[in-house]
Design a protein around this nucleic acid. Structure first.
Lengths: 300, 300
DNA sequence: CACTCTGCATTTAATTATTTTGTACCGCCT
DNA sequence: AGGCGGTACAAAATAATTAAATGCAGAGTG
């Protein structure tokens, strides 16, 4: 079999559902109308009608499509497992690299990874090709793919790039008018940080998520597709590292909260120089954390 | 046939060349040695030896590989046309979009484009997937690709991103020690700009290339893979637009040279604030040029 | 006796062939 | 005349196929 007939099966079931709402003798809509309703091509609708005609649910005579009887429970077709979305694949792949600490230079076995991630070889290749723009993987001269991976060089360059993007975002943020919704978000984040700081001993694990929210909020003001694309990857990487690096986690997170609060205060007072300095300090800490967690992982 | 035997053919010819330098009776090196010499796997070497044995150039008995006679001219195998490199593909693709002013939203016919660019459908898909990270193309929900293209939004965001990268590079550049090679490059560029400015009436076409060299030199100090990746695309886009937008070309280029010289002077005097201001002005002009050329193209 | 080379087998990956899906065009019925 | 259905062709995605790479064991050689 070449292509899967997943599309056919899903739509067939949907049409059966539709038939269940009618009563025998009712006429079905035109091919075109059905195609539009279920968002498939007429070809699919026609094969469905053919099948319905064959099993006797519908009598199909030219443009006459009459429902003969209600569909029986066993007539719905089994549908294979749902597809994995590109975002899900990205998440899984980064998770795999980071979690199992796949060393740089590892040759990537496309067929095996495709099985592992439950995607087609084709889909994985496409994904790898897109990742290659970030320099995370590269095509080998003759065959296959190779993981460039989280070398410390990569981490340094990523952090530097992040700093550039984020300082820029902060400069833009400061210039926004007082009635912009970002100030409301920042108030919320301010409260959330204070709440977490107050309960740091019990809830220090929750910081990872708050950190992601905070940086995402700052990044959201730029409205730049290139920035957005990078921030997705960057936040994933930093987020995962925060989660796994358990060394001094409570102290690290407490310190990071203070850094965030300092930045928030500077933002609220519209003091650009002070905000940039605070952000620079925080991102520098963040970079060091990432680097040291790489070193720890490399040794273990 | 599934895979092409291009690799086999190229190596076979290389081995024939090698044989031509020997004389009948000489023994060939071991499979492993040959494989290493021609940088292919032993499998390929073994099929080559098999063929050489068959046509009687070599007598192959176990590990005894004796040259029986010199190869005849007709025995070299024809090799199919050379492959297109990814860089070449990128250049061709952007050229195609920009040159023919392909409108945003155009569905991309993969089969046809692959023919046009002389690459396999597969290779083109891979390339499109990598471009999708830049938001220049996107995958359609069900089938195929769509060109997002150079909308003015895209141009604005690209210019903004470029400004961010380049201002950052300039800040870093200023901080470099006097013995860094960049200062030598800048001296050269300074001279080149003055020479061009002196002969602007005849040579204003040459500016496009000089502009690319200039921005590349500035970008080169960052040593950041993400920056490098973007600069490749950015410089291609701006470069092509400079080439095609013929409106007021002489005046535009003359003005741009002045802007460059102002920036160069600021760099040489290590005046960061002044350099950043000059760069900001220049990049703003550049953005306007890009935008207006889009508008002109859209109308024509 | 150790080391290298070869033969065989397994694994991997690129391309083609095949099947499914999408779309346009043409003719027919209402 | 206008919309609907039939047919035909194009394109996209996967499975199959085949080339190339690699691993391993045993033979041969210095």
């Amino acid at each position: 079999m070449a292509r899967t007939d997943d599309r056919f099966r899903v739509t067939f079931n949907a049409v059966l559902d539709e038939c269940s709402t009618l009563k025998p003798g009712d006429l079905l809509a035109s091919e075109l109308a059905l195609a539009a309703q279920f968002d498939v091509s007429r070809t699919v609708i026609r094969s469905i009608l053919e099948r319905l005609n064959m099993i006797g649910v519908v009598q199909w005579r030219g443009r006459q499509k009459a429902l003969m009887r209600m569909p029986r429970p066993g007539e719905w077709l089994p549908v294979s497992a749902s597809q994995v979305s590109p975002e899900e694949l990205e998440r899984q792949f980064l998770y795999w690299i980071l979690r199992f600490d796949v060393p740089p230079g590892t040759p990537l076995n496309v067929a095996e990874l495709a099985r592992q991630f439950r995607v087609s070889v084709y889909g994985l290749q496409e994904f790898l090709a897109s990742l290659s723009r970030f320099g995370l993987v590269k095509r080998r001269p003759k065959n296959g793919w190779e993981l460039v991976g989280f070398t410390s060089d990569f981490a340094i360059e990523l952090s530097d790039f992040r700093m550039m993007i984020e300082l820029n975002a902060i400069s833009q943020l400061i210039a926004l008018p007082d009635n912009h919704q970002i100030w409301h978000k920042i108030e919320e984040l301010d409260d959330a940080h204070r709440a977490l700081a107050a309960a740091i001993d019990e809830r220090f694990h929750d910081f990872s998520l708050l950190d992601e929210r905070f940086h995402l909020a700052i990044g959201s003001v730029t409205h730049n597709r290139f920035v957005a694309e990078f921030q997705k990857v960057i936040s994933l990487i930093f987020h995962y590292h925060y989660q796994w690096d358990k060394k001094d986690e409570r102290e690290r997170n407490a310190a990071a909260i203070d850094e965030h609060l300092r930045l928030i205060a500077a933002l609220k007072s519209r003091d650009e120089a002070c905000a940039l300095a605070a952000a620079r300090d925080h991102l520098r800490t963040s970079k060091q954390t990432l680097l040291s967690s790489l070193r720890i992982n490399a040794l273990s």
